[in-house]
């Protein structure tokens, strides 16, 4: 039986999420045996033509060219998995959505007339249908392997829509907000990282984005009680996945 083909695509992003594939050190050889890596330019310049059985798409859509290209990728992909905060929510570069891109363009670039960019950074799902989303900045290695393992046997991947707190508590960690007064976005943030930051006694930065229907107003009040300024609270909610825009209350 011919193994299914895997393609990796990059849009506006830092490459960190697709490198998670190379970070699967112990599983990499098994993975290379289970799928045929047909397109992964971070690892090899050899590209096999599509269509592809599964595509991993990293990055957000920030240029007119990308908006076209993602449609071609979708057309060539049987299963499309978007990976990372950029692809699932627009990423850090979506901070532009709250600002004037023209102003950035004129200030940052010597010859702004050569820059072709959109006014917003948008997730892949704003442009094409998406089969699965892996959150995070970067994504979690185990979740990537879970999606690929599930794909290979034809089952649904286990990607629960629960708070980071559920993972934190199962892991036996002590809540940094309750015990230390450290601001933490864990209660409104989508699980999947295994409560990585609280395990190092740091508050969650929310890089996995919001759970379904997060109660931002209630957590905002608690962040204030932890001593965060309004500016710091805005920054906390906007940095990775701009909670505020999606879920303004």
């Amino acid at each position: 039986m011919t193994p299914p083909t895997l393609a990796v695509w990059k849009f506006t992003s830092c490459d960190g999420c697709q490198l998670t594939l190379l970070d699967c050190e112990d599983e990499l050889l098994t993975l290379a045996g289970a799928v045929r890596i047909a397109r992964f330019t971070e690892a090899s310049s050899a590209i096999s033509p599509g269509p592809y059985d599964v595509s991993l798409v990293e990055g957000s859509i920030t240029t007119p060219e990308e908006a076209e290209r993602i449609r071609e990728v979708r057309a060539q992909s049987r299963v499309l998995v978007v990976i990372g905060a950029c692809a699932t929510a627009g990423g850090i570069q979506a901070l532009r959505n709250f600002a004037d891109v023209e102003e950035f363009r004129s200030l940052v670039y010597a010859s702004p007339q050569h820059i072709g960019t959109l006014a917003t950074s948008t997730p892949i799902s704003a442009h094409v249908a998406v089969d699965y989303e892996l959150r995070g900045c970067p994504i979690d290695r185990r979740q990537l392997l879970e999606v690929l393992s599930a794909f290979l046997v034809g089952r649904k991947p286990d990607l629960p829509d629960a708070s980071v707190c559920t993972e934190c508590k199962r892991r036996g960690l002590t809540c940094v907000m309750v015990a230390d007064g450290t601001p933490c976005l864990g209660p409104v943030t989508h699980a999947g990282c295994g409560a990585l930051c609280p395990a190092y006694r740091r508050g969650c930065f929310g890089c996995f984005g919001p759970v379904q229907d997060p109660n931002i107003a209630a957590l905002t009040a608690q962040l204030r009680a932890c001593g965060l300024s309004e500016e710091a609270i805005d920054r906390a909610f906007r940095t990775f996945t701009h909670f505020r825009q999606e879920t303004a209350t």
Partner: peptide, 26 residues
């Protein structure tokens, strides 16, 4: 916040769910 902390720290909350795990070889 619907974060679930109360149920996790509760000494009697007992609910569970299951997850099926397969490896890459299947």
């Amino acid at each position: 916040l619907t974060c679930g902390n109360c149920t996790m720290v509760c000494p009697t909350c007992f609910c569970t769910t299951t997850e099926d795990v397969t490896d890459l070889t299947g």
